[in-house]
């Protein structure tokens, strides 16, 4: 199979809109972290998108930015256009097939990190057994090596995917240096980023969640 020769860059407004579409209702820092843009750039784009009626901001404890119905429709349309223009649907579909092979394995790893089965009984992992935790962490590292080529291929098809390997590698590095919440628990954890990649692939290919 031939790799596409040039990468397609997404315009900043669509990048912010689509990122919010994939990560869900969020504050500025989460959108900035996911896009790699500064918070002030993100805020400026969000204000323009809000004026266009595509996003809206809710105040309060669980407040933040989210898409309107018009925003979801516009995103779906523009993302479909982007895929068509770049001619990358076959490459992305084949990459998504491989993502679906890796996905259950990553979920197994997250479950193994959170729970332990002892004598047939599932219990929450209390992280008192450091050798077990080290073994799971090593498996995450090994998994990541196999996920990287997939990420590279996605980024070669559409440049906007390049944030995922950066964020996944960052989460793993933090976990390896002792910030263990970066495997499954934090809002920038390996699982959270992977889950957003899953959503992005579904949204990009226009595949409905049943």
């Amino acid at each position: 199979m031939t790799q596409p020769v040039s990468s397609h860059a997404t315009s900043t407004d669509l990048l912010v809109l689509h990122t919010l579409r994939c990560i869900g209702f969020s504050g500025l820092s989460a959108v900035a972290g996911a896009t790699g843009l500064s918070e002030s750039d993100v805020e400026s784009e969000l204000i323009d998108l809000a004026v266009a009626g595509l996003v809206t901001r809710t105040a309060g404890d669980f407040g933040g930015w989210g898409l309107t119905d018009a925003g979801r429709a516009t995103d779906a349309e523009r993302i479909a256009e982007e895929v068509a223009t770049a001619g990358v649907r076959p490459v992305l579909t084949s990459a998504f097939d491989r993502f679906l092979v890796l996905n259950p394995e990553l979920l197994d790893l997250c479950t193994a990190w959170q729970t332990r089965t002892v004598n047939g009984a599932m219990a929450m992992n209390d992280h008192s057994d450091s050798s077990y935790d080290a073994r799971v962490l090593d498996r995450f590292t090994e998994f990541h090596q196999r996920a990287e080529p997939l990420c590279t291929e996605l980024s070669a098809a559409l440049l906007r995917f390049h944030r995922y390997p950066v964020r996944l590698a960052d989460a793993l590095a933090r976990a390896r240096s002792g910030a263990l919440e970066y495997l499954t628990d934090s809002t920038a954890s390996y699982h959270t980023v992977w889950f957003q990649l899953h959503e992005d692939l579904l949204a990009t290919l226009g595949i409905p969640r049943h």
């Binding site: 997250c110 959170q114 628990d185």
Partner: peptide, 15 residues
Amino acid sequence: ARGGPTSHAAVVARA
């Protein structure tokens, strides 16, 4: 309604 004990929903709920 869908998914098993290793679904995204389960991982997030435990987290």
